[in-house]
Design a protein around this nucleic acid. Structure first.
Lengths: 337, 337
DNA sequence: ATGAAAGCGCTAACAG
DNA sequence: CTGTTAGCGCTTTCAT
């Protein structure tokens, strides 16, 4: 049953029912009696205004999109949950999509999302900027907030980590512990966030007078499978680094797998420092030293940024971007030399 | 720009544009020339038929809902990804919701999903049946497929594991290895799936002539936090079981944490067998012996079942339910005595 | 304090 | 082969 049928049943006008059911009874000074009558009947017959009709009329759906690169990664699933929670409080639904770290899929999904009349979009991109991606975003008038991995050349409010500083934090910790040769397992050579993290590492290295070949970099791809090759390269080299930094949350799985296959032990054969705190980080043998990101805070900030634009469409693009700080979770996978 | 503006611009009727753009040009025998003209213009001006208008008119949105209890759990996130992939191929979007293992949230989200005019819903429930849940589902005319944890008394096609057999598989493996006292860490005392798994365990125990107090059961709640208390109870008892079965994927995190806190080692102090294969299962020390579910196959079956109803609405409720078999992944967390 | 009516963007039945 | 038109369910202006 829809609201016009309900109106007919009650002998009132659709508009009256609409006003009551969308919480505008006060505004239109509907009599208390009518309000009650409508509400009771709506309750009884389980009538809720159809969001499709309302959306069409209002030009707003009450739904935003969230596109993440890997819902299987606890970093993003935790984020997704936090974002959904925030928006649920505002009465806004979240449509979640997962590009599975694939740029083609990402563009496809993005295009679909953009054409779906959503009120807004939070995009946690795979990280590579293509012309298609750039065009799709700039051609669209939908409010967008960028999350986590940033996209250079795309003008939108964003929420991210101070990656350079996080990289420096990691490198400093390792160097302080007496390590000299560092290895970085990166997600994607093209991604800015990884590049910034590496720059942070290099900066510290330079400051402390190390040579540039004291840093080995490998890896292409954020998934566990893709990280295997990079880990292999790092760990089976004759001049294996003293310490490995896994720049991506899933990458550490590859390092651990290869390390085991090679019969290496941590931290005696090499130290390991992993970006992103995972539910199982502390349960590994040895417990993993990690660089943790303030996931919840970042998610809330992203939601808040989008909400501003949602409420005041004129403010598009006038918003600051938020940068968060990583913190070190010291455990036992980094040896002190 | 919408299709009527495009039509005006082109000097043709909206219906023509609609027919071309929704792939019905053939059916209506639109001239090749017109088709091309429309397509080119649509391309140029980035015009796509608004799904809202189309949905309203058709009475279908081209979108289904997926409600899972914990998107943070790799079991469900992998499932979500597989389901989304299947439906994307059909041109159907998936709206994902996460109840965070909370029944109130679940009911709230379900109600919202049900009122959203979706074409269908895949529900992986928290597992407790409430009157509200039952009523919400039976009052709705939306095609629903149940996934994973089942809901007794609710009549819908479903996809699940043969939990009894899986429990038996676990118990037999442990007993074969020479263990006598078994402990089960369950997710929820009220959930059927857990109950069935426990029944499977008990069945084997009985067959082999064990007493009923050779089995200790503890735990209430599927999250890692909630599993801590149950694990504590199991592991710190004076007559600690020889072997623990974690009935839920996240529960094993609790067991590992408590085990470490208590200074116990696996498998010398107790053996551990965990339901659900996780990305890190093989990387633990010792590598975890697990009971794996055929996640992808289950996801595809759920999608297939829903698709049948979507295509032929008359077939609602006439569908069989699918039951899958678990398999044992033997590793080193179970000692042979 | 309430009703009537227009119109959001689309598709499909009907008409030619 | 293409155009005209009625409505899908809703909100909102205008009218009373």
């Amino acid at each position: 049953m829809n609201i016009s049928e309900l109106a007919q049943h009650l002998g009132v006008a659709v508009s009256t029912v609409s006003r009551v059911l969308s919480g505008n009874a006060e505004k239109y000074r509907i009599s208390e009696q009518t309000v009650r009558r409508v509400q009771e009947a709506a309750e009884k017959f389980q009538v809720v205004p159809d969001p499709l009709g309302a959306g069409l009329r209002r030009g707003k759906l009450g739904m935003i999109g969230l596109l993440v690169p890997d819902i299987t990664n606890p970093f993003f699933s935790t984020m997704a949950r936090a974002i959904e929670l925030r928006f649920r409080e505002t009465g806004i639904a979240v449509q979640l999509c997962d590009s599975a770290e694939d740029t083609d899929t990402e563009l496809l999904l993005l295009t679909k999302l953009l054409s779906r009349r959503l009120d807004g979009l939070i995009l946690a991109p795979v990280g590579k900027v293509s012309d298609g991606l750039k065009k799709a975003i700039s051609d669209s008038s939908m409010p967008i907030v960028l999350l986590d991995r940033l996209l250079p050349g795309i003008d939108a409010p964003s929420v991210s980590l101070d990656n350079r500083k996080a990289g420096a934090l990691a490198a400093a910790h390792l160097l302080d512990a007496g390590h000299r040769r560092l290895g970085c397992l990166r997600g994607d050579p093209g991604a800015v966030s990884d590049r910034e993290r590496i720059e942070g590492v290099q900066e510290v290295l330079r400051e402390r007078g190390f040579e540039s070949d004291d840093l080995v970099i490998a890896g292409e791809g954020y998934t566990r499978e893709e990280s295997l090759a990079g880990a292999e390269k790092l760990l089976s080299a004759s001049d294996r680094p003293d310490a490995i930094i896994s720049l991506s949350g899933q990458g550490v799985l590859g390092v651990l797998e290869v390390s085991r296959r090679l019969g290496l032990s941590i931290p005696s054969d090499f130290s390991l420092l992993a970006f992103d705190e995972q539910p199982w980080s502390a349960l590994m043998q040895p417990p993993l030293t990690t660089i943790a990101q303030p996931i919840e805070a970042m998610a809330e900030k992203a939601a808040a940024l989008l909400n501003v634009t949602l409420k005041d469409p004129k403010s598009v693009g006038q918003q600051e971007s938020a940068v968060f700080e990583a913190s070190l979770c010291e455990r036992e996978s980094v040896a002190k030399k």
